[in-house]
Design a protein around this nucleic acid. Structure first.
Lengths: 194, 194, 194, 194
DNA sequence: AATGAATGAGTATTCATTCAT
DNA sequence: AATGAATGAATACTCATTCAT
C-alpha cells in the first residue's frame, strides 16, 4: 500500500475515533507509521486531505450499494435494496460522514464535491434509465436530475436519523420505510423485473 | 436590540464573509461594538453560538416560507410555493447554511439540532395533515415522518445546486421543477383548495 | 517599567548571551516575566524587535559618547574621546551589535536604520559645525556628510578589531590610534579649545 | 564549471533575489540543476556556504578595483578610482553584500572573515607602501593598518548610501566626493605619478 | 454589566540533513 | 559521485478564555 493511501486510511480511522477537530497530524502519521514531514510530501495541508477522504467514502458507499443491489431483482426491489444499503452505510459511518461534510464545507474544496459524487450520480442515473426503458418507473422522470434528487433524499433522511436524532434503531427502520414509500410513489413503481 | 441579539447577528454576518474557521471572537465583538469579555456574559463559549445562530436561521426560513405560502391556494400550489421559498432562502444564505451544518456537526451541539428544526417540522406536518384531511394528498402518508423527508428532500436538492454546483440560475430552476414534480407524484397531489 | 521596555531589555540580554539565531521568543518572555502571548501585543513578530533594540543600543552609544566627551576640552581632545568611547562600546557590545546589523539587514526593517542613527549623526554634525566655527577643523568639511563618514569610519574599524579579529587588546589600541591619526589629518585638527 | 562553483553562483543569485533567510537549500540546488543530496558532497552544511560566497564576492571586488585603477596614473587619481570602483560594486551588489555581512556575523564563521579579506587588505597595503615611498602620501601612515581603515571607511560610507538610505544617485555622488576629500586630507595626497 | 489587557496551552508546518539505492 | 524520498526536531504564532478593575 502506497504511503498516500496509508495516510488516507489512517486519517479515516483517527477522524472516526476522535473527531476532526481533535485530530492532530501527528496522530495520523503515527498510525500510518510514517514521519511527520512525509505527510506534507503527499498533502499540502491538513484540510487538503478532505477531498481524498470523501472520495474514498463515496467509493465505499457505491461499492456497498452495488453489492447489495441484486441486478436480477425487480426494480422496486432494487431501489429498496439501495435505500437499505445507504442507510446501512450511514449508520456505520455517520460520524466520519459528518466530518467530511463539515470538512468539505469549511474549505475551498467544496468545488470538488461534484466530481467526487459524480460516479454515484451516474450509476443511479443509469439504473433509472434502464428502469424507465423497462417501464418500471414513471416515464416523465429525467434520470440525471432524479438521480441527484434520490441520493439527496435518502442521505438526508438517513442523516436526520443517525446523526441528529437519537440513533434509535426502530425509529430508523420506520423512517426508512416511509422514505421508501415516498420514493415508490414519486417514481410510480411498477413491478417489472430488472 | 439587546447585546445577545447583536452578537448573533454580528456573527452571522462575519461568518458569511470569512467563513467559520477564520472567524475569531474578536471579529464578532468588534462588529457588534462590544468588548471581548462581554461576549462571555452571554455565551459560555464560541461553539455555543452555533445553536443560537441555527435557530435564527431556521426561524428566518420558516418566516419566509410562511410569507410565501398562500393558505388560500390549492395544496399543490402551496407546496410549490414552499419549494420556491426554500430554494430562495438557500440561494441567499447557502454559505451561512453550510456553516451551520458544519458548525453543528462538529460540536457537541448536534443534539440541539432536532429542537431547532422542530418548529419547521411541525408546521409542515400540520400542513400535510390538513391536506390529507382535505383529500389533497395520498392518504397513506404519515405527516410527521413525511414532513422531515420533504424538508430533507428540498434542502438537499437546493444545497446541491447552490453550494456544490456552479450556482447556475437556469440549472437551479430546472432542478427545482424536477424536485417539485418528484414530490407531486410522491404525495399524489389532487387539486383541492387549501 | 512598561512591558514593552521590559521585552526590549530582556531581548538584549538574551541575544547577547546566546545569539539571535538560538533565541526563542519563549526565552525572551521568560526573562521578562510575561506570558508568551503578551509579546505579540507589543511586537507583531520576532524580527520587528530589531529596530527597537537598535534604537536602544544607538541611544546607549550616544549616551556613553556624550558622557565621555568633555565639552570643555580642545576639539582634538574631544574627538579623541569620541573614538575612545565608540571603541569602548564596541568592545563591550560587539556581539549584540553584530546581531543588530544582521537582524536589520535581513529584514524589511532596513529603512528604519537611518532614523535610528539620525540623532547620532546630528550630534556629531553639531560638534563638527562648532569646531569649524571655532577654526579647529578644516573649513572645507561639510558637517552633515562628514558626520556620517566619521561614524562609519570609527565603527567599521572597531568592528574589524572586536568582531572579526582576535579581539586582541593591544591590537585594538594600536588600530584605535591609527584611526585617530587618520581622522586628525582628515579634519586638519588645530588645537583650539571646545 | 564544477558543481561546487555552480552551487556558489546559484546561491549568490538566489540570495540576491529572495534574501538569505527565505532561501532554502532546495532553491539553491534547483537552480544549480543538481540533486538535494549532492549539495552535501561539497558543503557540510548550509552555513558553510557563507565563507565561500564571501570569498567570491571579495575576489570579484578586488578584480573590479584592479581593473578600474590605472597603475600609471598619479596616486591621488588611483585612490579616486579605487573609491569609484568600490562604490560601483556596492551599488550593484549591496543586497548580497549585506547578506554576506549578516551571514558571516551570525555564524561560527566569523573567524574566516579576516582571511577572506586578507588579499584585499594586502593589495591596498602595497599600494599605500608604494605611494609612501614615492612621497605621494603622508610618511607617518602605517600601510597595513591604514589599508584596513580605508576599506572600512569607503565600504561603510557606500553601505550607508546604498543599503540604508534612499539609494539616491546624486546623493551617492556627493557622499562619494566627500569621502574622497576626507581621505585625501587624511593621507596628505601629493600629486606624484604612480 | 462591561471592559480589554493579559494569559498560555496547543500544533501545523518547515527544511536542513540523511541514507538506501 | 549522484540521487531525491524520507526524516523529525524545532518553534513562531494564534486566539479562546479569564479576571482585575
Amino acid at each position: 500500500m502506497g504511503k498516500k493511501t496509508a495516510i488516507i486510511h489512517s486519517a479515516i480511522e483517527v477522524f472516526q475515533e476522535q473527531g476532526i477537530e481533535k485530530t492532530k497530524i501527528s496522530d495520523i502519521v503515527k498510525r500510518a507509521g510514517i514521519a511527520q514531514g512525509t505527510f506534507y510530501l503527499y498533502f499540502p495541508s491538513k484540510l487538503s486531505l478532505m477531498p481524498a477522504i470523501a472520495e474514498v467514502m463515496v467509493m465505499k458507499t457505491i461499492e456497498i450499494v452495488k453489492q447489495t443491489v441484486d441486478d436480477e431483482a425487480t426494480y422496486p426491489k432494487q431501489f429498496e435494496q439501495m435505500v437499505e444499503a445507504i442507510f446501512e452505510v450511514n449508520k456505520e459511518y455517520y460520524e466520519i460522514l459528518a466530518v467530511i461534510y463539515s470538512g468539505l464545507a469549511s474549505t475551498e474544496h467544496i468545488r470538488e464535491w461534484e466530481s467526487v459524487y459524480a460516479p454515484f450520480y451516474e450509476w443511479i442515473s443509469e439504473k433509472l434509465e434502464a428502469a424507465k426503458i423497462a417501464g418500471a418507473v414513471r416515464q416523465s422522470i429525467k434520470p440525471d436530475r432524479t438521480a441527484k434528487i434520490i441520493i439527496g433524499l435518502i442521505e438526508s433522511t438517513a442523516e436526520q436519523v443517525f446523526l441528529y436524532a437519537q440513533h434509535d434503531e426502530s425509529e430508523a427502520d420506520r423512517q426508512k420505510e416511509e422514505v421508501l414509500d415516498f420514493m415508490s410513489h414519486a417514481l410510480h413503481f411498477q413491478t417489472v423485473k430488472g
